[in-house]
Design a protein around this nucleic acid. Sequence first.
DNA 1: ACGCTCGCATCAGGTGGGAAACGG
DNA 2: CCGTTTCCCACCTGATGCGAGCGT
Length: 566
Amino acid sequence: MLGGEGEGSTFSSTKGAAEERRKSPAVDGDDPTARSSGTVYTPSSAGRYPSSLHLSSVLPPTGFSPSAAGRSHFSSAYQLGQSPGCIYPPYTGSGSALSNMSLSTAGPGIRAQVYLCNRPLWLKFHRHQTEMIITKQDRRMFPFLSFNIAGLNLTAHYNVFVEVVLADPNHWRFQGGKWVTCGKADNSSQGNKVYIHPESPNTGAHWMRQEISFSKLKLTNNKGTSHSTSQMIVLQSLHKYQPRLHIVEVTEDGVEDVNSDVKTQSFTFPETQFIAVTAYQNTDITQLKIDHNPFAKGFRDNYDSMYTAPENDRLTPSPTDSPRAHQIVPGARYAMQPLFQDQFVNNLPQNRFYNSERAVPQTNSLLSPQTEDGASQRWFVTSMQQGGNSTSTSNKLDLTPYEGEYSSSLLPYGIKSLSMQTSHALSYYPDSPFTTMSAGWGSRAAYQRKVTPSLPWSPRPSPTAGFSEDSDKVKPQIEEEVNGSGGLISSWTETQPSALSLDKADSYSSACKRRRLSLNGPSTEDSPTDIKCEDLASAATNSSSYSKESPSSKGMAAYYSFYTNP
DNA sequence: ACGCTCGCATCAGGTGGGAAACGG
DNA sequence: CCGTTTCCCACCTGATGCGAGCGT
């Protein structure tokens, strides 16, 4: 590994986590991009955040007083998460939460917007209820969190970190092929819940210049190790969690400005919600992981032979399905992809391609026309909009095309508008060559030599580019799938591939639990594991399921969900 | 001779599967 | 007994180092 994230740095408790912040991982590490500052958090900041960040999910609402928090969105978020009987808590839809967030960020000049870079991938998982493996040793998240940020003050300094909080008060169990609540969550969870980006603190220009990846973030269920490293977030199995992105303006030294409570901005992406598990429960999730995680590639080949029948609902193209992947991944298997994709496309009923679109026609009217450059094709989710749906569709993602402000703030930096060809903004390992060029990758001649020529995904995927072609198609899909507290369940059903019919639950007996014991699941019926994203992008616009999430064609990769807190 | 490119080998680490162990 | 967790395994990716080949 590059070791640029301060691996090995340790601290021994929640308090230690705060200590760790003061001792920025980035500072400790050798990350060349890390600013020179030696501190990240002052004791004061440390004292403030642990209370909100670490305990927000477990403390009773009373533990938060708007005045004390100054970041009322934390408490609000908690309250949302505590909504009784709410299977899918309105953590995002809560107008209160977001309104508060708005308040906290109402400071002049501070109005960040955040993209979830690999949102399409997250959505794929989200449809089936994302699961994240947690192990005693630790396990990376996959998909991992990756953001693009805009709207920050160029010269101001910020700490960027992710907090993982309980998404709801329930304990979950996988039964009958679906997730059901099973008692109450254990709120006594201890351990680190925050992962500070190793490049923190850094300037707004820095954060906006590149994709902010949290690929090194690791999950564990070992409370004992929660103190060992800031890279680990301690979770409990069979609990549902919601990652949050926090951006805190700090001084040049990384010290939070204690005089300002309005310089903290938080962003929640419902599609990143997941259930922590020690072993995968849903075979669909397993298949998605295998299909998309390069490190799980070893589990793919066995399925090629199974995917003989054209599966309209092919879960996803492989991460190696990008043009680049075809070029850099050896093996006849990949050489055959064009054939597979043709079969896939040709066998897909045309009407399946646009179902979701037709189902939500109004969305088109809200969208900017597709353009080749994709300049106007971004999803801009405002907290206000979310708030408007707080009551009934709290979990819903309101998507509207974003233009103007974002463009003006973003493009000037050329941040995400790199012309670099990219069909894979998903950047599975953006910490590698692709997200942190400034972190040393750019200097690695050898690697560049080998990869750059065919590099399909950019380390700094352009949001503007990323949305090309899919905006008007994804939105409806998203609205359906990430819908309200109760909407998710329905969407789970509605958006299932044809093979994943409504009776999936029934068909998913316990015998189906282990993928290899069941080949009749939607996953196992997948057609060729490797279908070019480009083709899927155009063909899979259909089934609300695996539609436009694939890295786009036109050399663009990402589809971003773009949140902002007013 | 020198520098660069390229291919190969090696190593570290990430991945899910599956059996065994654990615990209520 | 059954659901959950732990551990080990094979397989994979990515990083790195080394040496051969080539051009200047």
